[in-house]
Amino acid sequence: MIEQALRAEPARRSEATDERPVVRGALIVVALLFVAVFLVLPLLVVFGQAFAKGVVFYARAIEEPDSLAAIRLTLVTAFAAVSLNLVFGVLAAWTIAKFRFFGRSVLVTVIDLPFAISPVVSGLVFVLLFGAQGWLGGWLSAHDIRIVFAPPGIVLATVFVTFPFVARELIPVMQALGNEEEEAAIVLGASGLQTFFRVTLPNVKWGLMYGIVICNARAMGEFGAVSVVSGHVRGLTDTIPLQVEILYNGYSFTAAFAMASLLAFLAIATLVVKSLVEWRLSRESKDGN
């Protein structure tokens, strides 16, 4: 297959837009094979392993108190991270898309920072800030506020890692829309908030949905940053990904895969919602034109 693809290479170059059927077929087969081996197969393995001991065992593995606690913490964390990033993301995107100001390009770059930083470093930053030996450690400890090694730290690390998703989706949409509609609303006497909720938000709602879905998927699946700030207290500060690791290292393979399958289910649900939103987005842009 690869040989064929390689041999096909010069042909493709000479007639860039009009490949021979053989070449096209080969490329499609290669692409599908790649997807099957690297994406579909692992997914099947996860579900195969998860149900290896039957549905009853699967249900029992998930009903385990520590696993239930991990599921609960993951849901709470994802909800908090998505809500905060929703607000931050909309604000940041609005600021960047609607205003020209000093430092605007710096802000755009800074929003992307979490993409560039290793998640482990993202976690460590919070330990250095809020840990007992950190900058704010003494003050926090004196007021009995726990951030790292407790759920707030997990939420913070998750917010940090998922920060770009909402803003990144919204900035191009808002920029494409321009300011005319908002200006018209304000000229007609709408207040700032009215303009935002009646004009801006409806215009960007599908872009926003898309950002939320992606942000949520990443928030639930984050491992590295959360692992650093978690403290790994069972039933208290373990999220689903951390619980998967604990179960796997504790020789509970089937239970580990059962938990992993929850994340896989989430991934599939995300894909479905994402396709729906994409479909709406493309339809809307067609309507707009």
């Binding site: 604000l91 609005w94 300011n179 200006e183 304000i186 207040s191 700032g192 908030l193 935002f196």
Partner: peptide
């Protein structure tokens, strides 16, 4: 318009 926008932005920040 920009002034209005900034004012509502400020109120959202305060809320947050």
């Amino acid at each position: 318009a920009a002034q209005r926008n900034i004012r509502s932005l400020a109120s959202i920040v305060a809320l947050l």
